[in-house]
């Protein structure tokens, strides 16, 4: 590239680092939400870059549904240990045991929606005033209108019609007691940008993202992994397929795709050629046209 010019990945990186530093400067007790998925992994990587040679000055936080892929949890623990980072873990199971939420029942039961209660309780208990999340505007149409700095009222809710204007790189994190902010440092990244950046920076990711053989079954056009936490219907049959995951979320609602891509180069090629969105493999978004909007208003990530 020409002198004094940087490519799109370095510009996105610079923007995200600016936002993360702004959080550290404007809030007293921030956390960064970490799920072990690729978006939170690059967000954590950007945080390390933002504060080097010092350590990241805030802890990570994981809302654990209990319905995990074991590979994700192993990866999370390895990464936190290796980088000497503190992580706060809150369990959806605890919210269920305390009677704060009632577990969904039936074949499509998911703890995805219940996470919101566990998250909001966690933020309130620990007096957290800002939670950074790895949400991207290209993921879903309701997210396309989210600010970098997204204000939440005392009930943790988002009011999409009453958002603060956000201009230049001036971020307004002012709030009253009891309110908090959600901040999305990688708002402007697309799925392709994320993969290219992982390749460019050689960032370690869980092996679930690479092609592997796995026991799966078909449901409503989605390939779900065989798991103790998903009850199967009588007519659903387990079969072995060569698959990988485009997104990693709760095991009950994250679909696999058939793929032979087992290097980052292959994955980038596959993403470049693909004709469906990555959330197309997420059955949580298929519940209704405004499923994400509704969950976000309640305080979802």
């Amino acid at each position: 590239m020409k002198e004094y010019n940087i490519n799109h990945l370095r510009e996105l990186e610079a923007e995200s680092i600016f936002v993360i530093r702004e959080v550290a400067a404007q809030f007293e007790n921030p956390v960064m939400l970490f799920s072990g998925g690729k978006d939170s992994i690059i967000m954590f990587h950007l945080a390390r870059k933002a504060f080097a040679p010092a350590k990241v000055p805030f802890p990570m936080m994981h809302i654990d549904t209990g319905h995990n892929f074991k590979e994700t949890i192993e990866f999370r623990d390895m990464l936190m240990e290796k980088t000497g980072t503190r992580i706060i873990i809150r369990y959806v199971q605890d919210s269920i045991n305390q009677g704060k939420v009632v577990e969904e029942t039936g074949y499509n039961a998911s703890r995805n929606k219940l996470q919101t209660v566990t998250l909001l309780d966690g933020l309130e208990d620990l007096k957290i005033d800002c939670a950074m999340g790895g949400g991207r505007r290209d993921e879903e149409k309701a997210r396309a209108k989210e600010r970098f700095f997204s204000h939440r009222d005392e009930f943790g809710q988002w009011d999409p019609k009453n958002q603060r204007p956000e201009l230049w790189n001036l971020f307004n994190g002012k709030k009253n007691m009891g309110e908090h902010f959600r901040v999305f440092p990688i708002s402007n990244w697309t799925e392709m940008d994320v993969w290219q950046y992982i390749y460019l920076e050689n960032i370690e990711i869980p092996n679930l993202y690479f092609s592997h053989e796995r026991e799966v079954f078909q449901r409503d056009g989605t390939l779900l992994a065989k798991s103790d936490c998903i009850p199967m219907r009588a007519d659903e049959k387990i079969e072995k397929r060569i698959v990988r995951f485009r997104t990693i979320g709760d095991a009950t609602c994250t679909g696999a795709i058939e793929s032979k891509a087992n290097t980052l180069e292959d994955i980038i090629d596959e993403v470049a050629a693909t004709r469906t969105t990555e959330r197309g493999t997420r059955s949580d978004d298929k519940r209704s046209e405004a499923a994400m909007e509704d969950r976000k208003k309640e305080g979802y990530f």
Partner: peptide, 14 residues
């Protein structure tokens, strides 16, 4: 990686 995909690594942002 194909040439097409590697080309995407060095773009400008507008």
């Amino acid at each position: 990686m194909s040439e097409k995909a590697s080309g995407y690594l060095d773009m400008e942002l507008l």
